[in-house]
Amino acid sequence: MMLTATAVALLCIQSLFVAAMLTGIYSLLSAALFVLLDAVDVAFTEAAVGAGITTVLFLGMLARIPSRPEQYRKLHLRVGPMLAVLITGAALIYATHDMPAFGDPKAPANVHVAPRYINDSAREVGPPNIVTSVLASYRGYDTLGEVTVIFTAGVGVLLLLGHRRRREDRDAP
């Protein structure tokens, strides 16, 4: 509920700084939700990376962008996107009637490969934390791909922002 309230506040807030702070609060609340849903690993990643690093990145960006009056212009409701969003939302809610019930142990997602991980990972991999076993062993290629994405994003950010600094150095003398 608080998560939804924060998201609604994000709709109405005008100042970009307040919006950035609310994004951090939103991430932290979702981390609390993940704890309630038994996903402790996801919760601390979300709290550290989602709430921490993303907020710092937003503040870094805001520091580099001069504050302008246009950022504080009144936000008005736009009919076209609102209509599209309402129709999509209604269709999605209609579709949920075919989904398995919340917390159902017999849901298709919970009977396929998960029992294998739960029953055999201690013998096959070792650590008591099943998430660690799956992340590092069974789905190690996913993690390798993740590292590739981080590397690419890091190179991209450096290319985008390092460019200006080099030009200033050249112009200075």
Binding site: A39, A109, A114, V131, V134, G145
Partner: peptide, 11 residues
């Protein structure tokens, strides 16, 4: 709880 979605979402 099912550990597989946790791994996917960590990534």
């Amino acid at each position: 709880a099912n550990p597989l979605p946790h791994v996917l979402i960590l990534t």
